[in-house]
Design a protein around this nucleic acid. Structure first.
Lengths: 195, 195, 195, 195
DNA sequence: CATGAATGAGTTTTCATTCAT
DNA sequence: TATGAATGAAAACTCATTCAT
């Protein structure tokens, strides 16, 4: 019973399933069949929609980044002060959703995928550039060298985030945010824009 | 063709080859045959000496950590001031050797392996604990909360390091060190130990 | 090339092929590829349907036992006298089909498999129990100790059967039956039920 | 430190080890290394002494048959009556040594080996011929058709013996002997030699 | 005599992918 | 659109066997 307009639903289901499977497994070594089964369809159909496993993984990655982007945009709603802007970015990175072990593991594996797939690399580069320019927009009115400030905080976010993938002695989401915010404060105080 | 005492040589060759192969591929999905070929022997011999691919990968990881540990120990020679101590740790993390793309890629993949292998997780935990206690030893005379300071700098090191795995717009080793040292300075100035 | 409902056909073909291959080789050391080739498919498909070589061998064994069971049931049709009943059981054991060298060799190897596989052991135990209770049902009206009688004839059947696996100076199927029937007669005459 | 006269010791050790390993494993699928390790030497040496795994297995088989033959010869010492002679043969087959699970499993596997190896087949044929002629020598003065009698008892011995390989609901050694002796008695009584 | 070193050939098993229906 | 059927290719791992020492 073919249905009309199934395509976007199927694709979405597969992407969701892929993220969950990768997160559970902690590896990109999940089979297309596993993903398809979780998404409630045959692996053949998964191929029909994505052409190849790689493209499916890329789509999954794109999805995570899209969600993250949306979260950031939502957090920047209203008319935040520069500092609130920075804080919002940090909070988004460690939001309940993004801080789930499965998502962290998936994210980590996308770094690995980026070693092989140009498309994946491109996506991660975009994520990084966006984060960077968002942070810079926040820092510009506050410090003299907003580029360095953004680079530092960006790297710190990634570092704290990736460390979570080891589960043990992990930081709580809130602690992670505090740690980073403290760095933000220090940066601003140490290099105030004296205009 | 020496016929005795080959084991340590073979194991070393395999570990070296594994790191290089993983680095080149950017994945743990390298075959034992590839590794063995690079090490100049048959895959059967690789299995003979390591029992399984996993144990070989763990050995490779252990090797990287050992080398890193040695580098750190060497850097801490002499009678460094606390600040020099911290700087030495940071410099070691971004030494020419450790900052090679292959080593970075291998390191990244060990994070992935840690998702599955308890032994790998254990090794990474050890690395982290050592780095932490070394940093703390440096920070203790300088700041009031050496734990937070170490946690921050540790995460920053990891973040900067992992970001290199994307090769594009990468920081030079020296820039990485400067960036982190600036954070160290700020931490010390913001939270001086007033003894 | 039918495309649906292939599973039972494929499984049956594989089971048949497995029995033949094992019989020809005289060993369980036949490769899945050999079996699959004889069954006209790839070894991958064989794994797809059976999950593992072991499960395929167990299925083969189950098949042989099922056929044997059917043969016995057929032989017990009608309203046989107790003696006819016993004779039918013996004849079934040495029927043309069961007395083929391939089947004998396969059967022998299942004894070996039972040393390792609990499932195989279970199946052989079932076969033995059935044979025993069938024999006992025949002997009960005829002798005073039907248990011993059944145990003796059961062991004799197995002994004559297994000896065939050595092919040389083998007994013909008919001779085997006569030999065992003579024992049956002696047992009945020596220990008549004097009701 | 080469030693003189080691050969027979080494060979004996290997043969013993092979029987034990096969018995434990319940299969001929034991590795030469396992056997050699148990015999306290390298697998290379095992090859040196036997040329191939097969020849080693044949030697193991020959050893079992030799031991069995010795046991029989010992049992036939003195001046036994014909009936004692038969009884001695049966008892030897189920002696404590021969009735160990390991020996039974090894024996069973030699039947399998005989499917492939002509030498193994030859050895089993010899065993059978000897048993047959020994039994016949016992039966000749007692029954009119000693050939059939021997064939029957021989098959019964093999049947009872092989059935033990399934361990469950096994007969004790003594019960096995009684069961078979009862058959002997019946045969003699049913077909007395009336000279 | 004895062995550690070494490997070729093979085996089970897995999986992405294709295709007929 | 959807899938069961099917497979080629590869991977990890094993093992009997050889050989230099």
């Amino acid at each position: 019973m073919p249905k009309i307009g199934m395509e976007p639903l199927r694709r979405a289901a597969l992407v969701e399933a892929a993220i969950i499977e990768i997160g559970h497994a902690g590896t990109l070594d999940v089979t297309v069949s596993q993903i398809a089964r979780r998404a409630g369809m045959s692996s053949a159909l998964a191929h029909h929609y994505f052409g190849s496993k790689d493209q499916m993984l890329v789509a999954a990655m794109r999805h995570i980044l899209t969600l993250f982007g949306a979260e950031v945009r939502a957090a920047l709603q209203g008319n935040p002060t520069p500092l609130q802007r920075i804080e919002a970015l940090i909070r988004a990175s460690f939001s309940t959703r993004n801080f789930q072990p499965e998502i962290i593991a998936a994210w980590l594996n996308f770094y690995v995928q980026a070693q092989t797939s140009a498309e994946a690399r491109r996506l991660l580069a975009i994520y990084r550039k966006r984060l960077h320019s968002n942070l810079r927009a926040g820092f510009r009115p506050l410090v003299r060298d907003p580029d360095i400030a953004s680079e530092t905080i960006g790297a710190l976010i990634d570092g704290v985030y990736i460390r979570q993938s080891l589960h043990d002695d992990a930081l709580a989401g809130g602690d992670a945010v505090s740690l980073i915010l403290a760095s933000v404060t220090r940066i601003i105080e140490a290099d105030p824009r004296t205009s």
